[in-house]
């Protein structure tokens, strides 16, 4: 019979599920830096990789998410996520120009770890359809942000700015990997 506090954002229903899914990739620095790094790396890889990676990544990440939702275990998920920041950050920092298929494999493997974590952390109350729409949109927009930042490469000294961002991403990944973050 006790009255409960009214909360506007409970994660329930269509709007709650959408917000919950959309903000999920945004509220974890280990996820954010890796998603942005994918876009930044694309800037160094050039065409067609800069556009192919955002086509491939959501599908592979959703596959990882589906594994998480289905309760299928993937080993060392958190280590893989932290490692993705380190590896992708270093690839950006060193301006590595890998062949497209190598880049797709590297990004795809890490995408499974990120997707799995999101899939297993789904709040029970969320509307699954709205959560999936929000989650994929949030992730995709992070990629687009990374790609947009990557266009800085075209500016004078721009490549050094992007490479410095890669160093910062690798450091953040390293902090997660060593347990300092």
């Amino acid at each position: 019979m006790m009255s409960l506090p009214a909360a506007a954002h409970t994660g329930e229903g269509m709007a709650g599920g959408l917000m919950s899914g959309f903000t999920h990739p945004l509220f974890g620095w280990d996820h954010v830096v890796a998603m942005v790094a994918v876009g930044l790396w694309g800037a160094f890889l050039g065409k067609p990789a800069i556009w192919i990676l955002p086509v491939v990544f959501p599908l592979v990440m959703a596959f990882g998410g589906a594994l998480g939702v289905a309760g299928i275990e993937v080993p060392a998920v958190e280590t893989g996520i932290a490692l993705s920041g380190v590896v992708l950050g270093l690839l950006v920092a060193l301006a590595v120009r890998a062949p497209l298929w190598v880049a797709a494999v590297i990004v795809g493997v890490f995408a499974i770890f990120h997707g799995h974590a999101h899939g297993t952390e789904l709040p029970d109350a969320a509307n699954p359809f709205a959560y999936a729409v929000g989650f994929v949109t949030g992730t995709g927009l992070l990629h687009l942000a990374g790609i947009a930042l990557g266009f800085v490469v075209a500016l004078p000294k721009g490549d050094w700015i992007v490479r410095a961002a890669g160093v910062a991403i690798a450091i953040v990944g390293g902090l997660f990997l060593t347990g300092y973050a």
Binding site: W51, P54, V55, V56, P58, L59, M61, A62, F63, G65, A66, L67, G68, V69, A70, G119, P128, F129, Y131, A132, V133, F135, V136, T137, G140
Partner: peptide
């Protein structure tokens, strides 16, 4: 193609649900 990829990703997740 990115829009198609996103719709496939949403479908894949909902399929798992």
């Amino acid at each position: 193609r990115v829009v198609a990829s996103w719709s496939g990703a949403i479908g894949l997740m909902l399929l798992a649900f």
